[in-house]
Design a protein around this nucleic acid. Sequence first.
DNA 1: TAGATTGTTAATCGATTAACAATC
DNA 2: TAGATTGTTAATCGATTAACAATC
Lengths: 209, 209
Amino acid sequence: MPKIPLPVAARLPLYYEYVLDIEKSGIASVSSNMIAGHLGFTPSTIRQDMMSLGRLDSSASGYSISSLKAALEELLGISRGANMALVGIGSLGLALAHSRLFMEKNFILRALFDKRSDIIGSVIDGIPVYPMDAMTEVILSERITIGIISTPPSSAQDVADALATSNIRGIWNFTPVALKVPGHVRVENVNVLPSLFKLSLLMKSDEKD
Amino acid sequence: MPKIPLPVAARLPLYYEYVLDIEKSGIASVSSNMIAGHLGFTPSTIRQDMMSLGRLDSSASGYSISSLKAALEELLGISRGANMALVGIGSLGLALAHSRLFMEKNFILRALFDKRSDIIGSVIDGIPVYPMDAMTEVILSERITIGIISTPPSSAQDVADALATSNIRGIWNFTPVALKVPGHVRVENVNVLPSLFKLSLLMKSDEKD
DNA sequence: TAGATTGTTAATCGATTAACAATC
DNA sequence: TAGATTGTTAATCGATTAACAATC
């Protein structure tokens, strides 16, 4: 199994979006030069990255779109997909539940959990809302491998503990809490504040021009 | 003006959260060793980064919390803050409008824009909803420098054009569209899908253990 | 074949880490 | 002073870029 360096892994989603784009236009292959020009890297970087992807069909007209797409879908987990559960139906949780973004990539939201009894038993966008204590059972029966945490920060660790107990394999954490989890659970944190700070930093550097 | 390398800039928000944490506990200074231990870097990296921040008060017990906090608030734009406008009140826009996350950091949402006439004129969480054609006027009168785009992808470029015309200085883009903007406008994109792919990649690497 | 592009090795660049004298 | 930590220079590491022979 090829071990993908982190800087390369960060570029894979960009490659994938680009591949989908040009696939639509009916072109059958793409060169490192074209990718580099479009995404703002050097052709050298692209070629080095392509080597990390394993064997691709390539020729003097570049890499075949179909083999590139297949390799990326395999690596990014799109080809196999995953079942997900979301815990905490606040305004962020609702926005995530409504989003078609991951659904389109085969990451399917199968279950919602909340502690508010007035919404338990209801169905949001086709997804049932369960009580918190049904977590272990539902995660098992729906073969859920990823848990999304969008609760208030104060409940985040408790929810992470419950998910870990339910044998979840990955946690997508939308709270600003540094979760403690057992070794078999992977955590990926989503934090938008650093991105706003970066924008602020960029704008500031414009000022003295 | 110190030019901050990107890898350093990416760590600044982490330092800031940590500084707020220990400030609460009443401790007056922190060593590179403590920061490194808590955030998972080496003390060397921390000290190099501190040098990028400019002159800090330091001693044999470490860096003074107050000078470190002040330097970070200055660099991250927290001390001066900014006024923001949000365009596109879907479920994501609502979640952002409800969030206290940036408000606490002096990034204040002053205006919401949408094209749906049934909500124009209403007030959401204390923030007025304006029609799209009031954009230039409101951005000027409220001294707004950052525009948030949370519309459907199909409208994103039109909104970016309108914001640029209104002399906005930064765009915080929550759509997956690669926006084209004039040189005086900075764009920062927020994309959660790469983060989900990264989680998927991590989980996959667990599998063959 | 001729032209273009890959695959791969070597060179460069920049970031991280180590080491230690200077400072508090 | 003695102990601890910074500030800074040098060494290491890894990622990006350049170069070019091999391939289509």
